[in-house]
């Protein structure tokens, strides 16, 4: 992401800077436009191009050496044996084949898929509706909810917090389950069927994009809703025809982040499930498995797995872009 941010200016500036140059080489058919072709007027354009280059050069070099070079090298490495201190040997698609055949890789992709779907449903779409519902509340409640969503909890702190909350012996969730709800002790993270769900739950409250939705919703002029109200639109229709369309660009952007984020889920599941993605690997995501490959010094295999994951993530992002571009009005 940092790459695209750094380079947007270049893309914007480049055509602007190039335009005077074009004019210079191709004079207009009517004998050339008068004032604009004078050398004096081109100077700013040229200087701008030099400055643009100078300003973006560090970022470009940084991106090249730390962003693209390692990425390309990773790709190259995946076709070798990735030996550490001896010359690498070209192995072709061997790593890809091995990773393809590994049942645990398939399992980790299934886990990641479920995790992604759960995570996007629970922490991405639900906050949209919650945010819309909240906007119907009084301003005081809205403010409190925004505060809650904005709580500056650090990732590590909340992870430690949730490890405690999920503790099967003395955790808060267990207490709620047994003492408040009167249920038998719940397995939470110790059940293969539940573990992914519980891993996603904390995201609803603390890592969800709810705050961004609310901020966007608040920027919609009240008149839009009033106009619809006068025409007799109810809550759902207002949401469908006004709130959601207005949220659309932000949803589109955040969805990409969410897809990338959840397909690369690693830290939280690792800490919460004790690195193995237990029980039975039910919570071992692709990146967690990739990390295990690294620990076994299987660098080539890990890189190949990384390439598979990259392709899938990229495909999802492309599909997402397609889907959101299918807009009747644009």
């Amino acid at each position: 992401m940092a790459a695209s941010q750094q380079h947007t200016p270049v893309e914007e500036e480049a055509p602007a800077a190039a335009r005077p140059g074009e004019r210079e080489t191709a004079p207009g058919p009517a004998g050339g436009p008068p004032a604009s072709t004078k050398p004096g007027t081109q100077k700013p354009g040229r200087r701008r191009r030099v400055e643009t280059t100078l300003f973006t050069l560090p970022a470009f070099l940084f991106q090249l050496s730390w962003g693209w070079y390692p990425m390309i090298m990773a790709f190259v490495l995946s076709f070798t044996d990735a030996a550490l201190r001896r010359p690498v040997q070209f192995t072709g698609l061997e790593s890809y084949q091995r990773i393809w055949d590994d049942p645990l890789v398939a399992q980790s992709f299934r886990v990641t898929a479920v995790y992604t779907v759960l995570s996007i449903t629970l922490t991405f779409f639900i906050p949209i509706f919650v945010a819309i519902l909240l906007m119907e509340m009084s301003r005081r409640h809205i403010r409190w909810m925004m505060l809650l969503w904005f709580l500056p909890l650090s990732g590590v702190a909340s992870t430690v917090l949730f490890r405690y909350m999920f503790n099967a012996q003395y955790g808060l969730f267990q207490w709620v389950a047994t003492k408040v709800l009167g249920l038998p002790p719940q397995p939470f993270l110790n059940s293969a069927d539940q573990v992914l769900f519980w891993l996603v739950v904390p995201g609803i409250l603390f890592f969800g994009p709810g705050l961004i939705y609310m901020a966007t919703l608040q920027s919609i002029p009240a008149s839009y809703f009033e106009a619809a109200e006068i025409e007799g639109a109810g809550f759902w229709r207002k949401m469908w025809t006004i709130s959601l369309p207005r949220l659309r660009p932000i949803i589109s952007m955040l969805l990409i982040f969410a897809i990338i984020g959840s397909t690369q889920a690693f830290e939280f599941p690792t800490i919460m499930t004790g690195a193995e993605g237990s029980p039975g690997g039910a919570a071992r995501t692709v990146v967690m498995y990739l990390f295990q490959l690294l620990q076994q010094l299987r660098y080539a295999d890990a890189t190949a797995l990384g390439v598979y994951l990259f392709v899938i993530t990229m495909t999802l992002v492309v599909i997402q872009r397609r889907f959101f571009r299918e807009d009747p009005d644009t």
Binding site: L104, S191, P279, G280, R284, Q292, L293
Partner: peptide, 22 residues
């Protein structure tokens, strides 16, 4: 020269047997 297939599937089963309540 290669570590061979990792012990991961075994660890998976161990955690499955240890923690799966049903």
């Amino acid at each position: 020269k290669d570590a061979g297939p990792p012990n991961t599937p075994v660890e998976d089963m161990h955690s499955h047997w240890a923690f799966e309540k049903g």
